[in-house]
Simulated scan of single mutants.
Amino acid sequence: MKLIIAIVQYKDSSGLVNALTEKDFRVTKLASTGGFLRSGNVTLLVGVEEEKVDNVIEIIKDTCKKREKTIISPYPVTESTGMYIPYTYEIEVEVGGATIFVVDVDNFMKV
């Protein structure tokens, strides 16, 4: 038995949970925060038999696509004069996708 831990962007989580449950995989959804943008993430836990790991990973890949997002970031400028000039600028960052861990499960039981 394997435990798949998938960290995905909040925007992708509902579609992924639906896609997994339609294929009869049981999913536990945990709210999480972190990363570069400090944006909401979701951590999904999926326990599966070893031969089904690739199926789950394919569903994650199909559902959680990477995309570009424009963010506005503060960027302080200090010239050689020592003057501090605060302003903001737009930057393109890549969001989406998934971070996936697959770990062995020593013991599994339902009570």
Rank of each mutant, 00 (worst) to 15 (best):
K11R: 07
K11S: 07
K11D: 05
D12E: 02
D12P: 00
D12M: 03
D12F: 04
S13F: 02
S13M: 02
S14I: 01
L16W: 01
L16E: 01
V17Y: 05
N18T: 03
N18V: 04
A19E: 02
A19C: 06
A19V: 00
L20N: 00
T21E: 06
E22G: 03
E22M: 07
K23A: 07
D24G: 05
D24R: 12
F25M: 10
T28H: 10
T28E: 08
T28K: 11
K29P: 04
L30T: 11
L30S: 10
L30Q: 06
L30A: 13
L30K: 09
S32A: 15
S32C: 14
T33R: 14
T33N: 14
T33G: 08
T33Q: 15
G34Y: 13
G34L: 14
G34C: 07
G35I: 11
G35P: 13
G35V: 15
L37K: 07
L37R: 08
L37N: 07
L37C: 04
G40V: 10
G40N: 11
G40M: 14
N41K: 15
N41S: 09
N41I: 05
N41H: 11
V42M: 10
V42D: 12
T43P: 03
L44I: 08
L44P: 08
V46A: 01
V46G: 01
G47H: 08
G47T: 12
V48R: 11
E49D: 15
E49M: 05
E49I: 06
E50H: 12
E50R: 15
E50M: 09
E51N: 12
E51R: 14
E51S: 12
E51L: 12
E51K: 14
K52V: 02
K52I: 08
N55L: 13
N55I: 07
I57A: 09
I57K: 11
E58K: 08
I59D: 02
I60Y: 04
I60W: 01
K61V: 07
K61I: 04
D62W: 06
T63L: 01
T63W: 00
T63Y: 00
T63G: 02
C64N: 05
K65R: 10
K65N: 03
K66G: 01
R67V: 03
E68Q: 12
E68A: 08
E68L: 11
E68Y: 10
K69W: 08
T70S: 09
T70P: 03
I71F: 05
I71N: 03
I72A: 06
P74T: 12
P74F: 13
Y75C: 05
Y75A: 02
Y75P: 00
Y75G: 05
P76M: 10
V77M: 06
T78L: 09
T78Q: 11
E79G: 13
E79A: 10
S80D: 14
T81L: 07
T81Y: 05
T81R: 09
T81H: 05
T81N: 15
G82H: 06
M83A: 08
Y84M: 08
I85K: 15
I85W: 05
P86G: 02
P86L: 12
P86K: 04
T88M: 12
E90T: 01
E90F: 06
V93D: 06
